[in-house]
Computed example of a mutant assay.
Amino acid sequence: MSQPIRIGNEYLTVEVSPLGAEMQSLKTKDGRDWLWNGDSDYWTGRSPILFPIVGKAPDDHVEIDGHVYPMAQHGFARRTTFDLTASTPHMCRFELKASDVTHAVYPFDFLLALEHSVEGAKLTVAAEVENRGQADMPFGLGFHPAFLWPLPGAEGKPHQVVLDNGGEPALLRLEGGLIPTTLKDSPFKAGRLTVQHSMFEADAMIFPQGAGSGLTYGVEGGPLLHFTFENLPNLALWQKVGAPFLCIEPWHGMAAKAGAGLELSARPSTTILAPGGKARFAFTVELPA
C-alpha cells in the first residue's frame, strides 16, 4: 500500500491513506491529533467511508434485480485501495472505479470520489458518486470518523453533543444489526446530550431523522468541534464501549429493516441514482484554531 498523502495549512495537517481513502490523522498547529489512532485493542478504523451500504445486510447479502450478492457490513469501499487523482498542498482527491472485483458483489458501473480539503481551521470531507451505467443505481453512503474522547485538553470533563437545531430526535437501537419497527424516546434534551460510555452498551445510537445539519461536540468552556453536514439526513453516535473515542457518523442510508428482505433499494434512506447522475455528500469540521 502506498504511503498516506499529507495536506495542510497553517492551522491543520491531515493525512489520508489510499486504502479506503481513509483519513489517518487530523492535527492542529500545536501538534495535537484530534482523530482516533486506530488502536487494534479497540477498533482499527479511524474514518472509514461506508459504500454501497451503510450498516448490515441480512446474512451479509443484498438482492439487486432478482440476484443475490454477498455484501459485508458497511460495504466494500473502506477495504479497497483508491487511486490518487489530484493533490495540492490543501486538497487531495482519491477515486474508486467499478471493476471486475466490485461487479462480483455490486453490478453497477460507478465512480466514487473522496476529497479532503482544508481552509483555515476547517476540514471538509466530500464524497461524490457517479452512475456510469445504463440502469438506476441504488446505494447508501456514510461517513464514520472517530474523534478522541476525551478531547485533547479536556480530560476528566463531561463531553456533550449539542445539535444546532435544538432538536430531540427519536432514537433507534439496532436489533441483530437490523432496524426494528419501533423507535425510542430521544436522549437529547433541548438539543443537548452528555455522552456516557454506558450509552453504547446497546451498540450505536442512531437518529434516523431530525438531528439536523450541524452539531457541536466537546466541553463547555473547553475544546469544541463544530460539524456541518451536506445531504446527510441520518446521524449515528458510536464507540466500542469504554474506548477513548466517539464516532460522529452522518449518513445517507441505514441498515436493512428487520423482516424486510434483502432488496438493496428497499433499505431506508437509499439513494437511487439515474444513469449519468451524480450525487454529493459532505461533512465539515471546524477545530479550535
Rank of each mutant, 00 (worst) to 15 (best):
G214K: 04
A57Y: 00
M254R: 10
I179P: 02
A135P: 07
A260K: 05
P58E: 00
L151P: 04
T44V: 14
N165L: 02
T216D: 10
L148Y: 07
D59E: 09
F245Y: 08
E63N: 00
V285W: 09
Q134C: 07
G261M: 02
G66P: 04
I206Y: 12
R78D: 11
V161L: 04
V285D: 12
V62P: 03
T81S: 15
G218W: 08
A256C: 01
W149Y: 09
K157W: 03
H226G: 04
I64C: 06
A211W: 09
E220V: 07
S17L: 12
I7M: 01
F82T: 10
G214Y: 06
G120H: 04
L50Q: 13
H74T: 12
E230L: 04
K240M: 06
N131T: 14
Q160H: 14
L287R: 05
D65G: 15
G133M: 12
N231H: 01
A154S: 14
M205F: 07
L172H: 12
H74L: 09
L174I: 03
P158E: 14
A86D: 12
G8Y: 04
D164R: 08
H67W: 14
S25V: 13
M205G: 03
F147P: 03
N37P: 12
F281T: 10
H74W: 10
I248C: 07
T228S: 13
S186I: 15
W238G: 00
Q134L: 12
G261D: 01
P150Y: 02
G276P: 02
P4R: 03
A57L: 00
W34R: 01
F76H: 05
W149D: 05
N165A: 08
F200P: 04
A113S: 09
Q73K: 10
A255I: 11
Y69D: 02
Q209S: 15
E168Q: 15
